[in-house]
Design a protein around this nucleic acid. Structure first.
Lengths: 232, 232
DNA sequence: CGATCGGTTGATCGGTCTCAATGCAGGTGG
DNA sequence: CCACCTGCATTGAGACCGATCAACCGATCG
């Protein structure tokens, strides 16, 4: 029975039964971690990779003045640190947002997987490329779109990714992001996030109630946000 | 005699003489292309990788309303499309900024290199990680810094990267970026770029004269921009 | 010589920030 | 069981950064 990680990789590259069992074995050393625990701190050397098998987390960079930019969020199946070639210093921090079951993989195991399983190697390349692509999209979003569209785009992205892992039903999903978190993803203020959220509700693009957001008409939201479907 | 590409990869991973010669052979099919020619168009399938051996280029995404976000710029030694696992659609366009000598590498050659030269494979991973890291930094820059610091940061980055390839002397470098280009990197307007450029000169952080920019005191600029040295 | 392109400057507008107050819910301790 | 505290969402008023629009300049090039 493939876990979320295997399922994700299979979306990019076809894997054999052997590949799958290798991956499952490699991610069998799991651990449940509490919300808001640091999986990784910017500047640390990273001697383990980790895979989120359930729960949410996000990655962020800090400025010296205390500003924070969230550069990515992780949903079940996502991983980080799989690719460190040499043991370099992390260039962002990672913290969990909810309780997460995460699998830790040692550098040696990764090297072994890469060396002997070409399809797995490809799959990991693919996932790294996906991350790069996602960063390009975020940069464009933050750099070019006005705040309402920017938030709308983010919500499109969230819905797509959560749908891909079966965590959204009928355009509705639940994620414990605070308005400050949204703000730090989008490069705006939490106050402004609040106003925009209200505004998007007012023009009937979405509903939100505490931690659950429901997109009424995904096509209309996509259109509003100029969201181009990505290959999740 | 290693070319710019080999020199770049060697900054990340130690290569043997054989690795180097393989790489040189793989990048021997070069071509000189004129400024402002498209190497790749967003949405196209990419059947070649290319390596910039001399000259500058940049990568950008377009919005449907015509806005443009430059997501990366390429200096000699940089490459793109090396990693395409399956032949996917490009998620940004690439155009040359100056005359460039670029080497085209076929998918087969890449696969062959990767399969038989583990150090080269590592080096390419490393360079992909570098790109990811650079995107994170850009996202943080655009998302969190006010415009003057944002521009200052970009100039720090430019100087670092150009120094790394020997294209800067005494904090001075030459690059044919128009103010509109700077603007599209930073997510601001060309008019505002102009004013900020003036402002940074006024407070003696830099000089610029047509296409050459000279940083008077790199440490002071770094400090102003909150620039953390990266591993180029 | 006129045309074009990019840089410069000014005036004004508006989106987003800042600061501050208020509300609201959950958790804790008396 | 209530009083308080804390964290987060909300709302308003005012300020400011950066956008917009428009004019002008200077260089380059046919």
């Amino acid at each position: 029975m493939p876990n979320a990680f295997v399922r994700k990789l299979q979306r990019g590259v076809e894997l054999t039964a052997i590949d799958r069992s290798r991956l499952i074995e490699a991610t069998s050393r799991t651990q449940v971690v509490a919300p808001y625990t640091n999986l990784l701190r910017e500047g640390d050397v990273q001697d383990n990779a980790y895979v989120i098998l359930s729960g949410f987390a996000y990655c962020f960079k800090l400025l010296t003045n205390g500003e924070r930019q969230i550069v990515a969020y992780l949903v079940p199946g996502d991983a980080d640190g799989l690719y460190g070639v040499t043991t370099e210093n992390a260039d962002y921090s990672v913290v969990t947002l909810t309780p997460c079951t995460v699998a830790f993989i040692s550098r040696d195991t990764i090297d072994d997987l890469l060396a002997h399983n070409p399809r797995i190697a490809r799959a990991l390349w693919w996932s790294l490329l996906l991350e790069k692509s996602s960063l390009c999209a975020s940069l464009t979003n933050v750099g070019q779109r006005p705040a309402p569209q920017r938030l709308a785009y983010l919500l499109c992205d969230l819905l797509s990714r959560l749908q891909a892992v079966g965590l959204a039903r009928n355009g509705s999903f639940e994620i414990p992001l605070k308005q400050q978190d949204f703000a730090d993803i989008l490069g705006i203020t939490s106050v402004h996030t609040c106003r925009i959220l209200k505004y998007l509700q007012k023009i009937d693009l979405l509903l939100h109630d505490y931690r659950t957001i429901t997109i009424v008409d995904f096509d209309r939201l996509k259109n509003y946000a100029d969201f181009s479907p990505t290959a999740y």
